[in-house]
Design a protein around this nucleic acid. Structure first.
Length: 564
RNA sequence: UGGGGAGUCGUCCAAUGGCAGGACGGCAGACUCUGGAUCUGCUUAUAGGGGUUCGAAUCCUCUCUCCCCAGCCA
């Protein structure tokens, strides 16, 4: 598409923006912002918002700011600020020099508050938090006016400056907008603008004793930055009248707030409260545990930024509550990795195989294709010898009907190597566990093709016992067992739904020798198993891999279906 | 029961008065030196009732269901 061609609207927000451009609203500018509160790590739900905001700026030749909504120092930390910046960058977006903080605007917010007091539109209220709640009324009953609502402009001004100066205790006084205590919209019942809060702010230190509330700070921040379209999630729909009220009363530049549905993902929790709980109680190893739906977790899990962006494009943007099947996310990462990562052979649960008729001291280097999807990735040599490992799952002494793999008397192909036939099974005398297989190979099938054209029904991956290296592999599964978003039914905590088998540790896996040089972050397909990446815990002495995603597994599906 | 929203395949998103379509999932098949990938086919939806119209997912109307709001959180 040509750069100047207007993009076709792909969702209702882009439709609105397209129309605003046509009608020359905001001088046809497009300026969005991504406004996280630095009180936790970003997750896949934020990725949706990031892709939306930065994506719209890109599509319409506009700009997108990164703005930290840091108005509550009791919950916010620099650690979160840094992680958020890293995650947005990793996703592939750039805010150039437009990094802002709501705390940049504290002084301006204060001055605007003074203006509202002068207009008789704000007042200092001495009600306690409990009293404010009582006066607010309920969903069905109107509230009543605060007894302090009628204070003079002078008294309000004096009190506000003394709030700022730190003369009053936390929670003792607030500055409130004077709107309508009987409004059906509870947000309009004289909402708090500033609260007394003596807390160390990660950027402004102890300079302020009062901090602005979201509703007041957000619209003014948007206005100050010249935002045109302020995109937020559905729960802020009720707040839009207040957003508009502040800006109208202040008489300043007025962006438009548009709400869209937040992302819900099956088998996942996406609430900051729950995620922080998992981190704090040790249910996961940290914010970047590969099972976490955080950007940091997804990254460590081996997802690519491209696959996450693609996912965000595919799920669309709309106003109805929805829960996306996590299978779509998994599809996106497989699709991407399939095309780009090298294949390699690794045996997760090794079963020893001795090729009886293969010479003791022979070592062959066989050619293996690095990526059948991309010939330009070339080939490599893998060593073959008399003693090998194959996957335990690839052998059944008593094979069920649809099991095509190795069994006594059966011939299969070892990928890129030879046809082998199982001629003996050695078991542990006490446990009856199969510990070793004796096989013969057909020398004429070198490379994996038989000159006589006979077929085998299975191709197995393998490694040479003497040449392979040991590795630790971490297998991950969904953190949450249930698909639905409303995990909390009567009397149940979401933690009851945690999958007890979300992590399986395999410490004695065998990988082909070429993988010895794998560096953290490196991604591979272990043939027939899935996509794996090297974990940061990995060292040259001890390689550690994370399973990013399994391959689609028809056999597993058949087996699972049978059990039912 | 106040205010604000939303109802389309199992799931997500389209269709903006004119043949309800795509993706994921599922099922079947083709192909395959990965039971992978790829390809093909199938599957299934307009919450309900009235109305307007030649024609309604779309407009009107009544009903039903679901979500959000009573923080000095965002």
């Amino acid at each position: 598409m040509a750069a100047n061609e207007p993009p076709k609207p792909a969702d209702f927000i882009r439709e609105i923006i397209t129309e605003d451009i046509e009608t020359k609203k905001y001088e046809s500018r497009v300026h969005t912002r991504f406004p996280p509160e630095p009180n936790g790590y970003l997750h896949i739900g934020h990725a949706k918002s990031i892709c939306l905001n930065f994506g719209i700026a890109r599509d319409f030749n506009g700009q997108c700011n990164l703005r930290f909504d840091d108005t509550n120092p009791t919950k916010e930390e620099v650690e979160y600020v840094e992680s958020i910046k890293e995650d947005v960058r990793w996703l592939g977006f750039d805010w150039d020099d437009r990094l802002f903080y709501a705390s940049d605007y504290f002084e301006q917010l204060y001055q605007y508050a003074v203006l509202l007091i002068r207009k008789g539109k704000a007042y200092v209220c001495d009600l306690t938090p409990d009293e404010i709640r009582e006066y607010r009324g309920t969903l069905t009953e109107p509230g009543k006016n605060s007894p302090y609502r009628g204070r003079s402009v002078e008294e309000n001004l004096d009190l506000l400056s003394r709030m700022r100066a730190g003369e009053f205790e936390n929670g003792s006084r607030t500055l409130r907008a004077k709107i309508d205590m009987s409004s059906g919209n509870i947000n309009m019942r004289d909402p708090v603008m500033f609260r007394v809060l003596r807390a160390e702010h990660h950027r402004t230190g102890d300079k302020w004793c009062i901090y602005p509330m979201y509703d007041y700070a957000h619209c003014v921040s948007d206005s100050l930055e010249g935002i045109t379209h302020s995109l937020c999630t559905l729960e802020f729909e009720d707040h839009r009248p207040l957003y508009d009220w502040f800006l109208n009363e202040l008489g300043i530049y007025h962006p438009r707030q548009i709400e869209f549905a937040r992302l819900n993902l099956s088998n996942t929790v996406l609430s900051k409260r729950k995620l922080i709980q998992l981190v704090r109680d040790g249910s996961v190893s940290g914010w970047d545990d590969p099972r976490m739906p955080t950007i940091a977790g997804i990254r460590r899990r081996g997802y690519t930024p491209e696959s996450v962006r693609n996912f965000c494009d595919r799920i669309g943007v709309a106003k109805r509550d929805s829960t996306v099947d996590i299978a779509l996310l998994e599809y996106c990462v497989r699709e991407d990795l399939n095309k780009r990562v090298p294949r390699v052979m690794a045996v997760l649960r090794p079963l020893k195989v001795v090729i009886d008729n293969y010479p003791e001291d022979l070592l062959e280097e066989l050619d293996a294709v690095n990526n059948p999807e991309d010939p330009s990735m070339g080939t490599r040599k893998v060593p073959f010898s008399r003693v090998l490992y194959i996957e335990k799952d690839d052998f059944r002494e008593d094979p069920p009907k649809q099991f095509f793999r190795l069994a006594p008397g059966r011939e299969v192909r070892l990928r890129y190597a030879y046809y082998i036939t199982c001629v003996g099974v050695i078991k542990d005398e006490r446990t009856a566990e199969v510990t070793e297989l004796r096989c013969t190979y057909d020398p004429k099938t070198r490379g994996g093709d038989s000159p006589d054209g006979r077929k085998v029904k299975a191709t197995l991956h393998w490694v040479s016992a003497g040449h392979s290296r040991e590795a630790e592999v971490r297998l991950y599964d969904h953190l949450i067992l249930e698909a639905g978003p409303g995990e909390e039914r009567e009397g149940r905590d979401f933690k009851d739904l945690l999958n007890p088998n979300s992590l399986e540790l395999l410490e004695s896996c065998r990988i082909e020798p070429g993988l010895g040089a794998a560096l953290p972050g490196g991604r591979y397909q272990f043939e027939r198993l899935g996509y794996f990446c090297v974990d940061p815990d990995s060292t040259p002495e001890k390689l550690v891999f994370n399973r990013t995603a399994t391959l689609r597994d028809t056999w597993a599906k058949i087996e699972k279906g049978k059990k039912k």
